[in-house]
Write a protein that binds this DNA or RNA. Structure first.
Lengths: 214, 214
DNA sequence: TCAAATTATAAGGTATGCCTTATAATTTTT
DNA sequence: AAAAATTATAAGGCATACCTTATAATTTGA
């Protein structure tokens, strides 16, 4: 199921506005929040309910499904990481940062915000103290040295880039997009299967080759 | 006239794809670029032409108006600043950075990308060497010490924030959103008119109060 | 308990920006 | 100059996500 921007916004708002995880959030509160008509909110909620993002309890409100909550948490994490970046590195006041983060959170993929988390030193809270939820799913884009033996994946990037490394990567057939599986992890190297051959990648190179597991 | 995302994308693509400023870019090239049908391209071009972003020469192609070119240049600048940030600070390979920048360039206002330019040390080119166009219009968001005498504007932000400054700003009535005009610039302070009273803002405070001129 | 207030739902509309099919106009090629 | 290819334009459609108006169902409170 594809998660559109609007869907994420709704799920995020429900997560933020609800009192507890179990108490249904009245649609009127959502309408108030977005400034949309009750009818529009109702329409959207019907759709989200059908798609399995939330439970709709007529005349009571909505609660998030496990799926919906996961989306909300991931969104919140991205949002607060952007907020931290905007305030800490670009010195933008929080009130503005909040709104801008609301747009950026949809524009950049998780891979980018995780890089942002690295850059910011894995902050635990947003500028006004609210906690930043941790990553829940095993992160899909990790360097080759951290991919478990047996795992299959796809090369996503070579980072940091260097001309030498790029040449080597090309020779190995490990260019972004290629499917690989990890055969063995040694102290000094990682052995991967690519197509029908095996390649021994030295550790310092493996650190720069990023894999999306599947 | 409001510049939607799609409009910016079209103007940016025309700027990038054209051979020279005068030679019309055939619609077929645009269709190829976006992967849209000729009819859709034609529809959109009609609209952009009516709105004054470009000149449409039937059977020949399109050229940008001054207005359209300004939008394209501003977009290009934002794009390349994001690219630099993504590659230099987040170590994302260029191929990916390009696509991500294509989304970020629409999500953040110019004020943010100008902050980014500061952070990056005003880079002159994007990661693969293409020049980053300079800001053309006098930048709308500048600190109070740089606003010329006589200029009118609106307070956009207090940056960097400090509890003391925020209290002072509140007392002066200089909160974000307030309309001000600059009466006098002295070495040690700036005198501004706010509503019907005048306020003397010490230089170190004026450096942290940002104004959008109009 | 019964009226008032809230909430649900149906029906029809708007804007954006894409689509296809079909026909007309113009340019290019032979 | 005529045929072929390209380009223009009309007409009708789709999805998303909002809108209003109007009616029905349910809950709340006096």
């Amino acid at each position: 199921m594809v998660v559109g921007e609007r869907i994420e916004d709704y799920l995020g708002a429900i997560y933020r506005l609800r009192k507890t995880a179990d108490s249904p959030l009245p649609l009127a509160v959502l309408g108030e929040h977005f400034g949309f008509s009750p009818v529009s909110i109702h329409e959207m909620i019907q759709k989200l309910s059908q798609q399995g993002w939330l439970h709709y309890h007529p005349y009571r409100g909505v609660t998030l499904t496990e799926q919906g909550e996961a989306v909300a948490l991931a969104l919140l994490r991205r949002h607060r990481l952007w907020e931290r970046f905007l305030t800490d590195m670009l010195h933008i006041p929080w009130a503005e940062a909040h709104d801008i983060a609301g747009a950026l959170e949809h524009a950049a993929p998780e891979a980018v915000t995780e890089r942002l988390a690295d850059l910011l030193g894995d902050p635990a809270s947003c500028p006004h103290g609210a906690p930043i939820p941790p990553l829940t799913k095993p992160y899909v884009d990790q360097c080759l040295t951290r991919v478990p033996v047996g795992a299959q994946g796809r090369v996503t990037r070579i980072t940091p880039e260097s001309a030498d490394l790029l040449r080597a990567v090309q020779a190995w057939g490990l260019l972004p997009g290629s499917r690989v599986s990890v055969i063995e992890r040694r102290q000094d190297a990682v052995i991967v299967q690519i197509e029908d051959k095996q390649v021994c990648v030295p550790r310092e190179n493996a650190d720069a080759i990023w894999i999306e597991m599947f």
